[in-house]
Design a protein around this nucleic acid. Structure first.
Lengths: 344, 344
DNA sequence: GATTAGCACTCTTATCAAATGAGTGCTAAG
DNA sequence: CTTAGCACTCATTTGATAAGAGTGCTAATC
């Protein structure tokens, strides 16, 4: 779509004005506020063309124009200027993250709070996932005669622990043996790589300790499970209600009913691409009830391994330049903090 | 307040009708639907008296009556009939909880989902707290030369673990020694009981291992902290938006902005009394922005020790009989499941 | 040929008055 | 003590009108 300069300027004006006001944009206001040196009538002609091209649309005959989904897309891809946080904001964010190492849960909550303050959108964050992380070590530590603590460490530095019941008659030596075997077979593998074949060999070798082994494998699976099914953390629900489009209760209900479904949010976040920041507009989200929304999201990582996603959900009319700036900055910092804090 | 039988019947009719319809109740509809064998005019006289007593009120001159806060209170304390879940519902709940032992996070999420389905209110659940639990055992397990895993077990069966950095030159024997000393001093104490005095004795005894000890105490404190500041889990936000009172966006915003504040929800839940189920109506919640709501909540426990709270928040007009029945049943089941699942 | 002023036309929103109707309070009769 | 009857109040609905915003088109202008 090779738009001439002026058409681009008009489209840009319409998008940016609509982002600010949430109202349809009239030819007159474009001419007045964005000083293109032409009269409203000329703008009207350009608008007419843009509408023909499907980039803007008219809610009704006697209203101004609003950007269409392709219009926003065009804006995001070609017209939007890269923006940054103010030094002041950057300093605030840094200060929040600079405090001494925190528990994972704290870091997550902290991140959400920060982003909630920086934008007026809904913040979604999927927690670190072990899926791609290689196992570093498994330990089975006897605590009481009938209980042991299974500790699983990954290369990315996460440590998970769980209790297992021990069958009676099991000695510490047995446990140590199991530990050895597991480490030999599993070290360096990622969870998905621990295939049936490998499990079989392990079972063969440890045929005598079948009972405990079953329990331990249950644990390993549970840990894996918990981390792929990892919850999506939310923040800023009240934020999004500030947006004028949500003075309509029906829309709020629609929004609420799908943001309460963990599975849906996870699906939305998981489609985040590998690029620095992914912007999905309206139907591009590929989930009907979210058709009226947009999502700006990015992946954060621990020493290069993508482990989780953070995203903003807002109306299609969201301030993309701002959202992209915030998400970009936060994922950078978050990745940095997590990498530094890792446990080895 | 000794109301005669008929006044009680009228009040009951008004409360129950208003709970169902959310509309002011007219004398005519009371006479018609609740067959008291008297005419609307008589009901009107009774209503007039009830209004004088402050139990009901009129939104405006030509409207029916709605219960006032004291009116609901009177209803809850004296008129409301105890209700139970249907056998069908009980079976469903049981089925959900019957599955094999789950991770704590799953139990919580599971409980919330269940209650969300059973009612039309907002579900709040504060996770198990260690605060009142006595320490059973502390273990410091060397994992790598520079890291150890500190495991803290309580009498209620919870196990928490955290990594600590070891100062260089620290041997396994040193660690074992620290472990011994901590166990000697701390076993059987609850977290709040680990006072400064006790800490001092420990420090004296372990003066040489000051560095690690500092880290370990940090951990103990962090675990304590995390568990008193324990998050409040929410569910059913979309539920509450079904209530007709929340077709007003302003009310929704007010609600959202305070339910997103963990601290506030915690404060509300924490005021739950020791009785089987606590009902707080409107201003009784003692938090101004929640004055228009009611909370039905109860404490759940692990083998007799109260560890957390579950509550429903709804409009003052909420179906108290139903809410009480649900909360009572769920806390019973939850306590049972948690007690059975505990780790010793 | 591109730009613009001018004007008719469309559609939404605001406003107001009148009509409607639900519900009460009071009075007087049963 | 109860109740029928009626006047009165107040919120809500309805319809009609006016006001306003914005466009599209045409014809004049640069």
């Amino acid at each position: 779509m090779g738009l001439n300069i002026r058409k681009q300027q008009v489209l840009e004006a319409i998008v940016e004005s609509h982002i600010i006001t949430a109202e349809p944009v009239s030819s007159r206001s474009v001419a007045r506020k964005y000083r293109l040196g032409v009269s409203p009538a000329t703008i009207r002609n350009e608008m007419s063309d843009l509408e023909e091209l499907g980039l803007i649309e008219q809610p009704h005959t006697s209203a101004g124009r609003i950007p269409s989904q392709p219009g926003y897309r065009y804006y995001v891809d070609r017209l939007m200027k890269k923006r940054f946080l103010t030094p002041r904001e950057e300093k605030i964010v840094h200060a929040i993250f600079a405090r001494k190492a925190k528990a994972l849960a704290n870091i997550i909550q902290c991140t959400i709070n920060t982003v909630t303050q920086l934008t007026d959108y809904l913040v979604m964050l999927s927690g670190p996932q072990l899926e791609n992380a290689a196992l570093r070590k498994i330990k089975a530590l006897p605590l009481t005669p009938k209980k042991a603590l299974v500790v699983i460490m990954t290369e990315t530095g996460w440590v998970e622990s769980k209790m297992v019941d021990l069958p009676s008659g099991m000695t510490e030596a047995d446990l140590a043996h199991i530990e050895d075997v597991l480490n030999t077979y599993f070290r360096g593998l990622t969870f998905p790589q621990i295939s049936r074949t490998i499990l079989h060999s392990v079972y063969d070798e440890l045929i005598k300790q079948r009972l405990v082994l079953d329990r331990i494998m249950e644990i390993v699976e549970a840990v894996l499970q918990e981390n792929t099914d990892t919850a999506v953390y939310l923040g800023g629900v009240h934020n999004i209600l500030k947006q004028p489009e949500y003075s309509d209760i029906v829309k709020v209900r629609n929004l609420m009913s799908f943001i309460e479904e963990d599975a849906i949010l996870r699906a939305i976040l998981n489609k985040t691409g590998p690029e620095e920041v992914t912007v999905r507009i309206g139907r591009e989200i590929n989930y009907d009830p979210a058709a009226g929304y947009s999502v700006v999201s990015a992946v954060y990582s621990i020493r290069g391994n993508a482990v989780g996603t953070i995203g903003l959900l807002g109306p299609m009319r969201m301030d993309y330049a701002r959202a992209v700036a915030v998400i970009e900055y936060i994922t950078d910092i978050l990745s940095e903090v997590l990498s530094k804090d890792a446990f080895f």
